[in-house]
Amino acid sequence: MRRALAPGLVGAVVVVLVALPLFLTPYPISLVTRILAFGLLVVSVDLLTGVTGLPSLGQIAYFGVGAYTAGMVGVHVTDNLVVQLAAGVALAALFALVTGAFVVRTSGIVFLMVTLAVGELTHRLADGLDAVGGSNGLAGIPPGTVLPGGEPLLIAGFVYWWVLAVFLLGMAVALVVSRSPLGRAMRGVREAEGRLPALGQRTYAVKLAAFVVAGAVAGAAGTAWTAQNRFVSPGDLAFSVSAIALLSVVLGGAGTLWGPLLGAAVVIVVRDELAAYVAGYGELLLGILFVVAVYALPRGIAGSRLRRVPSVRPA
């Protein structure tokens, strides 16, 4: 993990990302904006799935809480994006704390299914709750401002810069946590949960902390999604989005954080952009990509750098 990210390379990538709107037209910029928001959701899935070894299909719930909170604050309170981000992250983290208290008591395939249930229940709640627009979705979100009383962000490039800022913030939180003592304990849960208590670590607390951090990151991704689209609908929280987020993690290389980000970019480009050339076959392309990737990239895009101890099955 330590040598997974060279500071020089990270710096160069950030500079290129910041400079993009100066070179690209609005359409590709909105594509990259979408990749960044979805990518941050995928990073939150990787914090649980790859780093902590808890495969999740439920991060869409916290993404949804972030997205809807930002939208509701935008409609009813203020168009200030910083306030929307803070409110979205706070509520998503709180929701993760309340649900996580139960969910992290499970692991493995049961964790997968319980998180799936949380995701689906949130999806259906959004669909049935008239206060947030029900099945029509939450519309009429005004363009956001960054400074109080400032100009609203209407140009794709400015919206992109805001989403990039949220993305970099979320990514920084994920990286800092992953390298902190908490991150080491999370990896300990993944590799040998039974041994952690022997070292004086409370695995329940470690897993709950990881769940709340991942929920907060997913919430931030949700607010970024709303800032770009200025519209949230229950369709954004569908099971298929959770499945594709989890598979982006596997495609990219679980546990590396930056690999899943590349996985997310590949998935979005294949599904939304290449599909335009073969009308209506986006899912077919995605399916072929998944099948080929399993055989051609046994350790994901980030692959060969990650050394993982094979998991030992309890007798």
């Binding site: 495969p55 076959y281 077919l284 072929i288 046994p298």
Partner: peptide
């Protein structure tokens, strides 16, 4: 040949997506 649950999921979901379009 694949013994990791998540990669099995990736593979079989890929097959499911292909089958759905076919």
């Amino acid at each position: 040949a694949i013994n990791d649950h998540l990669r099995q999921a990736l593979l079989t979901l890929g097959v499911a997506l292909i089958a759905a379009d076919v």
